[in-house]
């Protein structure tokens, strides 16, 4: 069995990649992708820990896995709403550059 630490390390790398993506990309689409990457990094960490706990027999694995499902469901909802907003913005501005979306500023 592959050690849990490898999963967690991969999860951290994915999370960092996603984070850098959020910070550096301008396109809203790419932001969404990066956010998804971060969410799934977290998911990966959770299932990894769940597997680890259940292997050691101290806790059932369901806790971590249930959380992952909730995260997946919420992420799906978020993406559908987010993409909807994005389409509306694109229709208005013919751009999805988030740096230009700063109209709330005084």
């Amino acid at each position: 069995m592959v050690g849990t630490e490898y999963y967690v390390a991969l999860s951290a790398i994915l999370f960092a990649v996603g984070g850098v993506g959020v910070l550096t990309r301008r396109s809203a689409i790419m932001l969404f992708l990066s956010v998804e990457l971060m969410l799934n990094a977290a998911n990966l960490a959770m299932v990894a820990f769940a597997r680890s706990w259940s292997a050691s027999g101290t806790l059932t694995a369901l806790n971590g896995q249930t959380a992952v499902f909730i995260v997946l469901a919420v992420a799906a909802a978020e993406v559908s709403v987010g993409l909807g907003i994005l389409v509306a913005i694109f229709r208005n501005r013919v751009s999805t550059d988030v740096d230009e979306l700063s109209e709330v500023r005084a």
Binding site: V98, S102, E103, R105
Partner: peptide
């Protein structure tokens, strides 16, 4: 601080 730029906010959060 209130630049209105999402990426700046995200960076601060991070």
């Amino acid at each position: 601080w209130q630049s209105g730029q999402v990426r700046a906010y995200a960076f601060a959060m991070l």
